[in-house]
Computed example of a mutant assay.
Amino acid sequence: MFSPAIQHLIEEKSGAFLIPASRIAFVQEDNPLYHAFLILTKMKYAKIPVLDSKQRVVGLISLAMITNEMLTPDDITIDALSELKVKDVMQVKFDTINMVQTELETQLHLLVDNAFLPVVDDKGVFQGLLTRREWIKAFNYVVHNIDHEYELIPKSHKNLS
């Protein structure tokens, strides 16, 4: 459980955690693999969300997943890029969160193993991303501002009084 003081300061910044869907690069599950390859390469992202026709997150796709399909035992071929669809290659097991329902501590624990978490609403519709980077920025805010709002006295000093 978070310290109440830290929880309060992080909650002050929690609204800024979400990078809205309108600013996120994504692909549709029925896109050809070459489309995902182009998006990932041009945007210089390692991994992006995959959405279905109802804007629900159904997977994640990475450059590594795509290049793995291009490798044969003896060669590299681009044939898979036009033969396969994103849904044929995408990661289907991944964590998502709902910003209203998922506690801050749970978000932090999930970000230990994920560079980002897709954020969905109650119907599973993609709302945006929560990134480890945004959480680190919030932690930086706490570190630099906790003394401005709270008087912190080490417990060892209390015993001396």
Rank of each mutant, 00 (worst) to 15 (best):
R133M: 09
D88R: 06
M99A: 10
T106I: 12
D30N: 13
K42A: 13
F26Y: 15
D74C: 10
L40K: 04
P49Y: 10
L33T: 02
S82T: 15
K44H: 15
F116M: 12
T131Q: 04
N114H: 00
V86W: 07
A80G: 02
L33I: 04
E105L: 07
Y45E: 12
V100D: 12
D88W: 09
V86D: 05
I136C: 06
M99I: 13
Q127P: 00
H109P: 00
D122L: 11
E103N: 08
K47V: 14
F37L: 08
L117M: 03
F94H: 03
D95K: 05
L108T: 00
A64P: 00
M43H: 08
L110C: 02
T102D: 06
V100N: 10
T131H: 05
V86R: 03
M65L: 14
M90P: 04
V120Q: 04
A80L: 05
K93R: 10
V27I: 15
L84I: 05
L63M: 14
K93W: 01
T96Q: 12
G59H: 04
V86T: 09
W135Y: 08
L104E: 03
P32S: 04
G128V: 01
E103A: 09
F116E: 05
K87V: 11
T77R: 15
L51E: 01
V119E: 01
T67G: 01
R56H: 14
T72S: 05
K123V: 04
E69P: 03
K54S: 14
V125G: 03
Y45K: 12
V57R: 00
D121R: 01
P73M: 05
P118V: 02
T41K: 14
E69D: 09
T72G: 02
N114L: 00
A80C: 03
S82K: 14
L60F: 09
V58Q: 03
I136G: 03
T131C: 10
P118S: 04
D74W: 12
V86F: 11
M90G: 04
D79F: 12
H35A: 11
V100A: 09
V86K: 08
F126V: 11
D75Q: 13
R132T: 03
S53D: 12
V92N: 13
S62H: 00
E69F: 06
P49N: 13
S53E: 14
I97Q: 00
H109W: 00
V100R: 13
R132H: 10
A115Y: 06
H109K: 07
V92M: 14
L104M: 15
I39Y: 07
E29A: 12
L81Y: 05
P73L: 06
K54L: 13
A80R: 01
N114Q: 02
Q28W: 11
T96R: 09
T72I: 01
V89W: 03
P49T: 13
V50E: 07
L33F: 03
K85N: 11
L84K: 14
